[in-house]
Simulated scan of single mutants.
Amino acid sequence: MSHSLLIAFVMFATVMFFTPGPNNIMLLSSGLTYGFRPTIPHILGITFGFAFMVGAVGVGLGTVFIAYPVLQTILKYAGVAYLVYLAAVIAMSGPVSPDQDVGRRPMTFWGAAMFQWVNVKGWVMVIGTITAYAAIAAYPWNIAIQVGLSLLLGSISCVAWALFGSALRPILTSPLMVRAFNIVMAILLLASLYPVFMDA
């Protein structure tokens, strides 16, 4: 095992997991809007969904995208469309009161897990992880290490962002303040699409 490469991978993954991106912005907004406990399925969906994607690409799915580049383009623009939709949902979200319609819920486990496949930042992380740090160890242990560290760092990051959002609940007390905060989050979510259009 290459310990220096492992340290470099941990540094890369930590920066990528903890910096603002679609997942973290949505978790922050969900923590504020719904609270931490209802956001747990969203956290688990991101954590396991992303780690599964790392594993799937690492064991060979990435060759499909090399053989059929149009699939990557389709996923990219499907992700853009979905992020625009999510930004609109977040922008229109206000605080949830106890007597409000119970139909309003944060993203589900499966919704968050499937979102990883159209998450532009997620693909940047996966490609960087699989290509730049493949020499951490011999195959398939390199993939197992990458998946394990993605689970660990991803879960810590997701919990931190959701807790940060829920910690804002006592501060942002009025519906107007929550709506304004969510509008800012929606704008940041749209801003995260900037690399996509620069790459187009």
Rank of each mutant, 00 (worst) to 15 (best):
L28T: 08
A88H: 09
A87V: 02
R37S: 11
G148M: 08
T39Q: 06
G62S: 13
L151K: 02
L189Y: 09
I183A: 13
S166Q: 04
G60Q: 09
G94P: 11
G55H: 00
A135G: 14
Y85D: 03
L190Y: 07
L152P: 05
S30W: 03
M198A: 15
A144Y: 05
A56K: 10
A180K: 14
S97T: 14
M114W: 09
I66P: 01
P175A: 08
T47F: 00
P41Q: 00
L188V: 08
P170M: 06
A132Q: 15
I40N: 11
G154M: 01
R105C: 08
N24H: 06
K76P: 00
T47K: 04
I130W: 00
I74L: 14
A160R: 02
I143T: 13
G62C: 01
P106D: 02
R179E: 05
P170Y: 01
F65S: 03
I25L: 15
F50T: 03
V64F: 13
L172A: 06
H3D: 14
N119A: 10
H42V: 02
R105K: 15
V59Q: 01
A56H: 07
P106Y: 04
F197P: 00
S150A: 15
M53L: 14
I46R: 01
A78Q: 04
Y139V: 11
V159K: 04
I183G: 07
F50W: 04
I130C: 09
F48A: 00
G60I: 07
V57Y: 14
S97M: 15
D101K: 03
I171E: 07
L75C: 10
L188Y: 01
A191D: 13
T173M: 06
F164E: 00
I187T: 14
I90W: 09
T63G: 11
L61P: 03
F109N: 02
M125V: 14
Y194N: 11
I183Q: 12
R169K: 14
V84Q: 06
V80Q: 05
V96P: 08
Y133T: 08
A67S: 12
G49R: 00
W123K: 11
M26T: 10
